[in-house]
């Protein structure tokens, strides 16, 4: 029973890991850029949802949509003004730019919001569903469902709409896509906006159980990269599988080892998977 409980908890938290990591993998898949500043957009998304709750009284789960829209817009701007310039630059320059972006966003939010920890109060944040001996935390469940919905929405967008197909075409072969009349730059803007928007959305839905402060991104950045690399860099399905796997490993490992070691277990599994399948769980066949 304890095992089942651990698996449920792991899946719930893993769903959130998945949605915040989808953005990272999307940006890499379409543009080939590893965005080290990705976790900062999670922080920004949390702040947007926090202020929407504080000043407009909007529940963070609804506020997550505002987060998505605003950060999507910001992402498009960042892509147009900054990322676009380094698309063909050496990878090391790309790293500098995104790491620089990380430092700038973090310090700007420290200046703007101060270093306070902020936390929302909602009616459901201290409630849980009981299924016999099992507990399902309501804020976790809500975050999980929102993650699921957003994943579904992204899938519909990329597979069922012209824009989505055009974006995938650009990822596959920018030149050919261009020849077919697709504006590749526009597609990259959408991809980057979507990528950071998804992460911001993920930040907003965890607000009912997590506090926000300007450096909260640090707590997630390593997890995000683990999820994405474990699943296979560039693969959205991989991020979903990776997120769930990471969540479950973290949770189940605490049954057998001290909680202190949960990340050790995670990284042992991580190294083993990469040794056996260097492309990740759902990596592309070469």
């Amino acid at each position: 029973m304890a095992f089942l409980q651990a698996v449920i908890d792991g899946l719930m938290i893993g769903g959130v890991y998945a949605v915040i990591s989808i953005g990272l993998t999307l940006v890499f898949g379409v543009m080939g850029i590893v965005n080290f500043a990705q976790a900062e957009f999670l922080t920004l998304g949390m702040f947007v949802a926090f202020f929407a709750w504080k000043y407009l009284g909007i529940d963070p789960l609804v506020g997550s949509l505002i987060s998505f829209v605003l950060i999507f817009g910001l992402g498009v701007l960042v892509q147009m003004t900054i990322i676009q310039r380094v698309l063909n630059a050496p990878p090391v320059a790309q790293i500098f730019v995104t790491v620089g972006l990380l430092i700038v966003i973090e310090n700007l939010s420290l200046i703007a919001f101060g270093s306070d920890f902020r936390s929302v109060t909602t009616s459901y944040q201290t409630s849980a569903l009981r299924l016999g001996p099992l507990f399902i935390s309501v804020p976790y469940l809500a975050a999980f469902c929102m993650s699921l919905l957003s994943g579904l929405a992204l899938w519909l967008f990329t597979n069922k709409t012209w824009y989505g197909r055009a974006m995938r075409a650009t990822a596959q072969d920018p030149m050919a896509a261009h020849l077919m009349g697709i504006n590749a730059d526009r597609m990259r803007q959408i991809a980057f906006g979507l990528g950071v928007g998804m992460t911001a959305f993920g930040g907003a839905v965890i607000l009912p159980y997590f506090t926000v402060h300007p450096t909260v991104g640090h707590q997630f950045v390593v997890l995000m990269f683990t999820v994405v690399v474990l699943g296979g860099l560039g693969s959205v399905a991989g991020a979903v599988v990776g997120g769930l796997v990471v969540g479950v490993i973290q949770s189940v490992s605490t049954l057998f080892f001290p909680i202190q070691l949960q990340n050790l277990v995670l990284f042992l599994v991580f190294i083993t998977v990469l040794a056996v399948r260097p492309t990740g769980l759902i990596g592309a066949a070469r």
Partner: peptide, 18 residues
């Protein structure tokens, strides 16, 4: 999830990179 099929393409671009 059927997502995997649709998104293989996203990662395929890596083949062109060093």
């Amino acid at each position: 999830m059927s997502e995997s099929k649709g998104h293989k393409t996203l990662s395929a671009c890596r083949a062109n990179r060093p």
